[in-house]
Write a protein that binds this DNA or RNA. Sequence first.
DNA 1: GTGGTCTAGACCACT
DNA 2: GTGGTCTAGACCACC
Lengths: 122, 122, 122, 122
Amino acid sequence: MSFNFNNETPIYLQIIEHLKKLIISRQLLPNQRIMPVREMSLEYGVNPNTVQKALKELEDLGLIYTESTNGKYVTNDENIINKIKDETINKMIGDFFYSMEQIGIDKNQTIDYIKGNRKWIF
Amino acid sequence: MSFNFNNETPIYLQIIEHLKKLIISRQLLPNQRIMPVREMSLEYGVNPNTVQKALKELEDLGLIYTESTNGKYVTNDENIINKIKDETINKMIGDFFYSMEQIGIDKNQTIDYIKGNRKWIF
Amino acid sequence: MSFNFNNETPIYLQIIEHLKKLIISRQLLPNQRIMPVREMSLEYGVNPNTVQKALKELEDLGLIYTESTNGKYVTNDENIINKIKDETINKMIGDFFYSMEQIGIDKNQTIDYIKGNRKWIF
Amino acid sequence: MSFNFNNETPIYLQIIEHLKKLIISRQLLPNQRIMPVREMSLEYGVNPNTVQKALKELEDLGLIYTESTNGKYVTNDENIINKIKDETINKMIGDFFYSMEQIGIDKNQTIDYIKGNRKWIF
DNA sequence: GTGGTCTAGACCACT
DNA sequence: GTGGTCTAGACCACC
């Protein structure tokens, strides 16, 4: 895995977001074992404590659970996953509308663009 | 004006993007005079050369023009403004869809979210 | 390389014109590596930033491209080179006719001189 | 008269070239009285001595003559005028061919361009 | 070692 | 006071 952090956001938050995305996009499945902290810290190229801090928060969120001495696993609580997924999606959509409003495109116009009533290329 | 730069992107590019948004959102109107380079550098808290570099690129883009010894002005060429606006919108929409795909939401699902066939809060 | 700049034209523009000539006259070939910025600045006897500015504009023109951390190279796009070459030739011919008109020789007379219907020495 | 000097060439030489052009292009006619030195120095915005030096050289060339106390006049010797005109034309044509050779266009190709066997726009 | 960015500060031309 | 150019020198990311 190659990974680039940006400098503005604390690294542990970036790791949280990254693992969140892996879980809600089903690249990490419920009850799947998560890579050990030490290994993950090597992958990310950061201090194990930083990874530990990120995993702690993910566990607080309920996205992972710890089987003591056996490692950490993705939750099998689909409700939690879907809740986080919805929150993530809502945030992304909200940010998107906000960005569009920043350049003078209101919500209805944005929806028009998306629905193709207005043309665009990408 | 208070302004926070992030560390990942060159300052002059952030200035370009900021001024671009002001122009395409009509917060700066065609033929409107732009703040002098030195003054703008104080506002942004950066070196005048950095502002100069950003404004030079905006002039290359055709978004501003210079009246020598008098100052710089927003272009009165609506076509240019609209072209840049469209490009900006397309990029934002493209980035948005890409981010959604990153968490496993394909384009059609994204459109469903936007159109409200799926619920969300923001 | 010894080089004399004149005082009327900005140095970076003179560097641009010089490199342009080297490229369109095939003294610098497509994909040929260009001297590093720092070294070139020593050759020209100017500040590296000045060279940087010139090379940036040549890149904007499409005459050179950058391989990040490796150096800068002449474009391999023959169309660009020929386009710039044509523009340069047209400008030189236009300037020449204009100069001749300044001393009362119109275009047809100039062509007569060139074709040798009128004699001259050089 | 508005006049811009460049910084590379001595001003008196630029004045010489300017007056030469006026004479050989027949904007100043044989036996026509030339503007007094003091007046001309005001027109050019330079020191009268500088104008004086230029006129002295033009007189050495035979392009003007002095009627003591009455002023200076353009020569009525058409041979001199034509000789200088030819020299000027030859120099301009030579310079032009040289510039073209600088970008890899030899004399025959240049003539082709001029005669229109090759296309150009201006 | 490579290009790229940025600062601090100077000087110039123009008006 | 305006934009534009230039220098000297620093730091960064990339490999």
